[in-house]
């Protein structure tokens, strides 16, 4: 068994209005100096030993992320 983390982020050229809204709220809360926020998704998968890296890439590319608008990374934690 292993824990795998898949992070999915909007591509740099894709407008991220949610991240912009978060960035816009920070000064109102008294936090200054944060110049940009991008918001994405974080998945944690528990997988058994039969799930190889190719399979994880297919899960990320074909389902968890939409490659038209998003980038993804896969990390094995253990």
């Amino acid at each position: 068994m292993a824990r795998v983390v898949v992070d999915v982020m909007p591509k740099p050229e894709i407008l991220d209005p949610q991240g912009q809204a978060v960035a816009g709220a920070l000064p109102r809360l008294g936090f200054t100096g944060v110049t940009e926020v991008r918001q994405g998704k974080h998945f944690e998968l528990e997988v058994d030993d039969t799930v190889d890296d190719d399979t994880l890439a297919k899960i990320a590319e074909g389902f968890l992320a939409n490659p038209v608008i998003e980038e993804w990374t896969v990390r094995r934690l253990s």
């Binding site: 894709i14 209005p17 939409n66």
Partner: peptide, 16 residues
């Protein structure tokens, strides 16, 4: 679009 029958994607409205 998700199924690949049409190109592109739909994302959150610009002003949310």
């Amino acid at each position: 679009c998700e199924a690949g029958l049409l190109p592109g994607a739909l994302v959150r409205n610009q002003k949310l």
